[in-house]
Simulated assay, not measured.
Amino acid sequence: MIQARDMTPAELAALLAFHADAGVEWLVEDEPVDRIAAFAGERAARHVQRAQPQPAPMQAAAARGIPAPPQDQKPARSQAALGSTLPAIPDENAVAEARFAAESARSLAELKTAIEGFASCNLKASARSTVSVTGSGQSGIMVIGPMPSADDDREGTAFSGRAGLLLDRMLAAIGQPREAVYVTTIIPWRPPGDRMPSQPEIAICRPFIERQIALCEPRQVLVLGNFAARFFFGETGTIHALRGKWREIGGSGHIVPALATLHPQELLSAPGSKALAWLDLLAFSERLQQAPAQV
């Protein structure tokens, strides 16, 4: 376990900020705080809120004084909806094209160019940008999230916005600056409405992320969130069941140990879970110190 005396002032500051976000106010309290129970209460409150009836769209518009469109007038279609009607390439052909494009890349730079030029996934038609990876991977660490968020799509880089800032603090708390970590997502394009990708879309994107792992050759991978954990581990459990257990993942012949933990966005929604994420980060850092450094 990392000791405070072994950390730099910057690392200590990042760790204190992470604890503050988790609700820690005192290093030692008179009574223990049950963070698991706090998370359960927050989840129950969200379920109650979702169960409350919501007004229909037309009723909500009328309540705000917005006139209803004539019944014979159809609403204008968005550019994303128009893009979804473009002629689709058969899924099996698109997967083959993705595999060929990924395996043809001999470097991460070539793979980035191949992904940006790939046009056989319908997700690209509705996304604003092809989300780029960040960092260099020189630390031997690879962080893989699920799919781009609205902030990522707008900025064009993985883990932007508040979730990205929290990820920065999480990495800094274990002494890893973000610029030295290879941060990417399984899906390069944001699905419309932040929906889950379909199975054909997942199959099309799989060769690209597997090739990234092979070319980056990380010592360890940190997997973030439900979708990413299920994608790599082939299981259907939630992140709370899949987190904290070491498994092996890989692609193109490169096998690497991986540990799953909660996604920063989930930690923002349920701060009580940050205690669990901190345990995972400690386990990740401890194994990283035991692994041989990259040459």
Results as ranks from 00 to 15, higher is better:
A88T: 08
L171P: 05
H254Y: 10
K112P: 02
S129M: 09
A241V: 13
Q59M: 13
P9S: 03
R35M: 07
A98E: 00
G250D: 08
A270W: 02
A101I: 11
A214S: 12
T8F: 08
V143L: 12
A114M: 13
R195V: 00
S198M: 15
E97A: 01
A127N: 07
L282W: 00
E103D: 13
A13Q: 09
M147V: 08
Q176L: 06
R77I: 02
A125H: 11
A10F: 00
I209N: 01
C121M: 14
E116L: 09
S139P: 03
I202D: 15
A60E: 15
G135H: 02
E97I: 00
A127M: 04
Q71Y: 11
I213Q: 00
T113I: 09
F208N: 01
D280M: 14
M1S: 06
S84Y: 03
P57A: 09
H47T: 11
L281M: 15
W26C: 15
S285D: 15
E201T: 10
D168N: 15
R178M: 14
S126K: 04
V143T: 06
F159L: 12
P188I: 07
E248H: 11
A10K: 03
S104H: 01
I115R: 08
G253R: 05
M142N: 01
V295A: 15
A228I: 15
A270S: 08
L279E: 11
A56C: 10
P53Y: 09
I239Y: 04
A94R: 00
I115V: 15
I89P: 08
Q290W: 07
A20M: 07
S149G: 10
T261N: 13
K74S: 15
D151S: 08
I187Q: 11
V223P: 11
V133G: 05
L259A: 13
V133L: 05
A22G: 02
P191H: 14
P191W: 15
V223L: 10
A203V: 01
A37R: 03
S198A: 15
R77T: 09
G250R: 06
R5E: 12
F232M: 13
A150T: 14
S269L: 10
F208T: 07
G145I: 04
F227N: 07
A10E: 12
A68I: 13
F159H: 12
D152Q: 01
L215H: 00
E201K: 07
P32W: 07
R247S: 14
R35S: 00
G250E: 05
L166Y: 04
F39G: 12
A203G: 09
D153H: 12
E210S: 11
E110C: 01
A228E: 14
L215Y: 04
D151P: 08
A10S: 10
D151W: 00
R106P: 06
G65N: 06
P191V: 09
W26P: 11
E110Y: 05
V221D: 14
L108I: 11
S136I: 08
A40G: 05
G175K: 05
K112N: 10
K112Q: 14
Q49L: 13
I36M: 04
H19R: 10
E92F: 03
A22M: 02
A13K: 10
E97L: 02
G117N: 12
H47S: 12
A127L: 05
T134K: 15
D280R: 08
R195M: 05
S139D: 00
